[in-house]
Design a protein around this nucleic acid. Sequence first.
DNA 1: TTGTAAGCGTTATCAT
DNA 2: ATGATAACGCTTACAA
Lengths: 349, 349
Amino acid sequence: MFEPITIKDIAKALGLSTSTVSRALRGGYEISADTKKLVLEYAEKINYHPNPIALSLKERRSHSIGVVVCEVANNYFSQAINGIESIAYNRGYHVIITQTHESFDREVVNVQHMASRSVDGLLISLSSETKDLSHIKYLHEKGLPIVFFDRVAADIETHKVVANNYQGAFDATEHLIKAGFRKIGHLTSSPTLSITKERLEGYKAALAAYNIPFRESYLKNCEHGGMIQTEVESAVRELITMTDRPDAIFVAGDKLSTGCLTTVKKFGLKVPADIAIAGFTNSDVAELFNPPLTSIRQPAFKIGQIATEMLIQLIESKYPVTEFITTRLDTELDIRKSSEYQPVPKYTF
Amino acid sequence: MFEPITIKDIAKALGLSTSTVSRALRGGYEISADTKKLVLEYAEKINYHPNPIALSLKERRSHSIGVVVCEVANNYFSQAINGIESIAYNRGYHVIITQTHESFDREVVNVQHMASRSVDGLLISLSSETKDLSHIKYLHEKGLPIVFFDRVAADIETHKVVANNYQGAFDATEHLIKAGFRKIGHLTSSPTLSITKERLEGYKAALAAYNIPFRESYLKNCEHGGMIQTEVESAVRELITMTDRPDAIFVAGDKLSTGCLTTVKKFGLKVPADIAIAGFTNSDVAELFNPPLTSIRQPAFKIGQIATEMLIQLIESKYPVTEFITTRLDTELDIRKSSEYQPVPKYTF
DNA sequence: TTGTAAGCGTTATCAT
DNA sequence: ATGATAACGCTTACAA
């Protein structure tokens, strides 16, 4: 039903062979200027476009890169995707986005589908369920260019781009400590994720730096990274109902932070009077939140850009790359000033 | 360098012809049970997967659907995309997402790219710059299945799925009126968009229903739908600094609503004491906002789902579809209770 | 300079 | 029941 203009049509119309037409359309060597012009003009006229599928089949590449993230509906990732696109677009690559919804099975399916559709490379942020990396290792060993960002795989040797999670967590925790809190809980994502580990280390280091003992009971993991509200709720409930409960929480994750805020509010706790919260979030409206949230911002856009640049470099390098680097970008602590948090008039309408 | 397991490899290994292998792999007629089993088991063992590119070339279809939205970093669209995916995934389709960033040129490029890569159908929400629809009309006339959602094209005959923007706008405006406001401004997106027009009509109708005259000066358009902060800022500034300024604003759009809130706060106005705001937003944390925002929620997930179902129906229907329907889903007015907006203690840490 | 033919991976048609 | 062949659209040795 659709767009049957092929190189053959041109050849027939012009009384040439398909190869001559092909040559005219491609680079210009081995062809007479006249023929070339003729073909080019005719192709233009009938609005010919080469069939990229045929090209992919032939060249075994697709000029597209695949992206694997857990969720698009997450400020960090949607910003990262914008960064990815900004680079890919003007380097002539198209971007295929897939979501895992934190499911390992889904990750495997997505990765395999994209690989088999000949994406030229993969940009991956692991799902929180992922422990086994063989589906990725397999492709990596076959030579498919892969760059990890955010949630990276420890034992796959390739480029990686992440925020300085350790330092961000340290800063956030230290911020809480300096504000006078010493009983600081930590609400975080799946313990298998690299970001979870790095942030936990930063948190522990800050506690240690101020001689505050780490307490196991103050640590809560949410496997689904805040996508499931009930999971956050029960974790937060446990934190705030335990004996000798924390008076502050350091939260590691975008959805987790907002989920925590929502829950705390639901339970009638005032922030920061009853409990203070500092969390990783890239929400552009974080400063509008009430209860207030001190947020650790990740350079998501930049991370997406760098990861994409590295991937394209990998794709286009003629020789196998042997040295892989991990780029670590600083986070930013966004502290609200107390003056901004004036009581608001009652909402009467 | 990559995944050279083809039907040929199986044929060679098993001493069969490629056609026999193909038959064994497909449906099962005209083949002996033994051979079939042999092939299937071997294919399984060496982890064979058919090359979708080759299939696409042959079948002239790709089992993928293309999505065109302005931004992924927008609560409405990221939720809609989740709806789209949820249906596409278990109907065996893959989803390719592209963003226009409200640019017409980008829309044209994206649409053409996807069409030429043989997507089986297109799910489109128009960019705010789009006036000329010929790039879409062309494909539509060629027979490419297209379903519009949210920002729809008036003069292209196909399925469309939208929220009841008229009613939503009416409800929001009426809500403000009933709360005692009579000078209600309207901050909205590009006047070319269907949603803009529908919402404007709803707003006007509500004013009329309460005998409030419509004032041209109270209407502000933002071409970029809130993606550019300065644009929102100057529009809001104009609204709140004019003589006889509005005491309430009805805002039409996700980013626009949060942008409006941010700006109003920046200018030191209290909500709703100085100015009340009701706006379309799908933010899952809207209830955390301070200043408070009364929000009109769109069933984004559902809209995505229905649009996808319709598209797949179009794709898979054997006969040309002649009757096209527009589905209109109700919005929901989310009014915060005044009791939830207690003054918060000063943020002292 | 141009044409012929093979091949990318698969399936459908036709023989056998 | 199985194999050979052509075809999907394109590029590229290799011939002419």
